[in-house]
Design a protein around this nucleic acid. Structure first.
Ligand code: DCP
Ligand code: MG
Length: 634
DNA sequence: CTTGGGCTTTTCA
DNA sequence: TTGAAAAGC
């Protein structure tokens, strides 16, 4: 088997997904320039999905709806529903489940996002090949398929031709180049069979859900993803490895999945290349030296179109979370505000967790709480977790509040906390729900068996199981997921962590972004100096967290973090706090005070026990509201 | 005061 | 195991 051509991998991605969901709900929106926006008050709301008709007018995601209307006056704007005072994505999640269920009839899939899934079709293709007398793939079974790199054009012969004519010529030419004598096999023939299956799957998805999608078919996930985008919407694209060199010669590095961020920029700048194909000029040693073993090797293969990341059999999420931003003047200042919003988030979380228990027989055991403080450019200023024992919004909210208080006050009574610009609750560490019936054989047998896959033995102690109806595909998935878990971890994605060392200049910028005070490293506060520690806090040994890291610096793993002693939970409110600050405490002026803050660094925060260590963390210059407007007690 | 928002997964130390 | 960060939809 040719190196890098071992598998047949497909990626299916829904076209302007949220828009299609809204169009199905309101058919008047069909075939019109249309967007989905969330919230209304600020500039008409932010656009998160755009129909292809609207794209033709230059409308894009991240635009304000008001601005988009200027580009396209007839633009239809569908609104994300709101519940508990926040955007509610339920209808899109449910639509996603519909789609995934249909796709799972055709293959074991990895749900990669709300609207896309990967599938490894290698085994299915082999099966289909075995049954094929005639190894001729019919052109008319690939009605929506493109083959990248075909038709091969030497001059400008094809320039004037209709796009559909070119597509068809390309498929014909490519099919003709494959050996199709009985018993023949080749990686390219297998891609063609894969494309056949994906044509069927996509037709099935549209028939069952009404939603259209595009797909890429190739030998690995990166190429499949790339191929999918080449002929959107409502089309699929085969990307043979032989077409990669020409494609990669002029493909910007950032177009490759995983290279759209800092790593990609560092490749472009560090190697002085623009296109991914240019990376082939560097030796393996050069790449590993610059980017580390794992990333270097991945990159060496990738720039040749080779990638071994496995498709992970998983169609259920690993975490369920909700969050809300409070930008600018909306930042939360009082305990009552924080309490209230935590409760709203907890209500939604409880609903979704209960639904998950009902539908999939799984319960989450870990609650993660996160916040962002005003002035912090990071997505999350800090997060801590605690046990999630019961699905009760009130309890979830109060645990979350306790965590936030413990972190924010850290016993520093006088140094006020900055307002909060983000609250986040997330539940994870799912396990089988008590009382969930395992492996529902009745529904397994009764569900329509469309697929000719080898059905793995469905042992009684499978995965978490739905209480309603188990579909064959979900059972197949559970078996596949279980298999996967027991196998050795195969990993091959290059998500690189600490920014790469390139030149010193970039790194200063990185630091500046993190801390609002540039150039100056904020002084470390000694934890003992300005604060009274509670009993429990005193037991913890202070842990020095390195000052803001320069990107290249090595972060020291501190020793004592693992030792944890059970501690008593500090009181929720400090005696001095005024509970009710009802009037809307808008931050009136930009009175900037320099305030260093202390943070508690806590491992495993539970309502009953605070385990672990106190850590000093330093802040830059903080812009604080006048004292009377501060978030007392937080 | 940094303001597209609300998500999810993976990697690293 | 945890929390931060990266990358993505
Ligand atoms: N930053 C983003 C990106 C996407 N989405 C949502 C809305 C999209 O409809 C859906 C799928 O994302 P895609 O990137 O696949 O974009 P679309 O499906 O909308 O369009 P395309 O046809 O390009 O796939 O996820 C989102 O909420 N926020
Ligand atoms: Mg999509």
């Amino acid at each position: 088997m040719d190196y890098g051509k071992e598998r047949v991998i497909a990626l299916v991605d829904m076209d302007c997904f949220y828009v299609q969901v809204e169009q199905r709900l309101n058919p008047e929106l069909k075939n019109k320039p249309c967007v989905v926006a969330q919230y209304k008050t600020w500039k008409g709301g932010g656009i998160i999905a755009v129909s292809y008709e609207a794209r033709a007018h230059g409308v894009t995601r991240n635009m304000w709806a008001d601005d988009a209307k200027k580009l396209c006056p007839e633009l239809q704007v569908a609104r994300v529903r709101e519940s508990h005072g926040k955007a509610d994505l339920t209808v899109y999640r449910n639509a996603s489940v519909e789609v995934i269920k249909v796709m799972s009839r055709y293959a074991v899939i990895e749900k990669a996002s709300i609207d896309e899934a990967y599938m490894d079709l290698t085994a299915t293709v082999q099966e289909r090949l075995k049954d094929m007398e005639d190894r001729q793939v019919q052109l008319d079974l690939l009605k929506t398929t493109y083959v990248q790199g075909f038709p091969q054009t030497t001059e400008g012969h094809l320039d004037g031709l209709d796009k559909e004519v070119q597509r068809s010529l390309g498929v014909q030419e490519w099919l003709g180049s494959l050996c199709c004598s009985p018993g023949s096999d080749s990686p390219e023939l297998r891609l063609a069979i894969g494309a056949l299956i994906v044509e069927e799957m996509r037709a099935g998805v549209e028939k069952e859900t009404g939603f259209r999608c595009s797909a890429g078919i190739s030998h690995n996930k990166v190429l499949a993803k790339l191929a999918c985008g080449l002929n959107k919407p409502n089309r699929q694209t085969i990307l043979p490895l032989g077409s990669v060199p020409e494609l990669f010669r002029s493909l910007p590095v950032s177009k490759i999945r995983n290279l759209g961020g800092k790593l990609g920029s560092s490749i472009v700048e560090g190697l002085e290349v623009e296109n991914i194909g240019e990376v082939t000029q560097f030796t393996q040693a050069q790449l590993t030296q610059r980017f580390g073993d794992k990333t270097g090797q991945w990159l060496f293969d990738l720039c040749r179109g080779i990638d071994f990341e496995p498709v992970k059999p998983r169609q259920l999420p690993k975490s369920i979370g909700c969050s809300k931003n409070f930008p600018g003047r909306a930042a939360l200042v009082t305990t009552a505000q924080v309490q209230n919003w935590l409760h709203q988030l907890a209500l939604e979380l409880e609903e979704r967790l209960s639904e998950e228990r009902e539908m999939n027989g799984r319960v989450a055991k870990l609650l993660t709480v996160g916040v962002r403080q005003a002035g912090d450019s990071r997505a999350c200023s800090f997060s801590r977790c605690c046990a999630l024992a019961r699905y009760e919004a009130t309890k979830i909210a109060s645990d979350a509040l306790a965590i936030i208080k413990s972190l924010n006050t850290a016993g520093s009574h006088q140094a006020a906390s900055p307002p909060l610009t983000l609250l986040l609750l997330s539940a994870s560490k799912f396990s089988e729900a008590p009382g969930a019936s395992s492996g529902c054989m009745a529904s397994f047998l009764s569900s329509d068996i469309n697929t000719k896959q080898k059905v793995p033995t469905c042992d009684a102690k499978g995965d978490a199981t739905p209480r309603r109806a188990a579909t064959i595909q979900s059972l197949l998935h559970r078996a596949a997921e279980k298999r996967e878990r027991t196998e050795t971890q195969k990993q091959s994605s290059p998500l690189k962590q600490r920014p790469l060392l390139l030149s010193g200049k970039k790194q200063e910028r990185t630091e500046t972004q993190k801390q609002s005070s540039p150039l100056k490293r904020p002084p470390l506060l000694l934890s003992g100096e300005k604060q009274e520690k509670t009993e429990t806090q005193k037991q913890s040994s202070p842990l020095k967290q390195p000052p803001v890291l320069l990107s290249g610096e090595k972060q020291e793993r501190t020793e004592t973090q693992k030792q944890s002693s059970p501690l008593k939970w500090p009181p929720l409110l400090f005696s001095g706090e005024k509970q009710e600050r009802t009037e809307t405490q808008k931050q009136t002026s930009s009175s900037s005070q320099v305030a260093a803050r202390l943070q508690l660094r806590v491992r495993q925060v539970t309502p009953d026990s605070v385990t672990s260590k106190l850590v000093k963390r330093c802040a830059g210059d903080w812009h604080l509201p006048p004292p009377e407007h501060r978030l007392a007690g937080l």
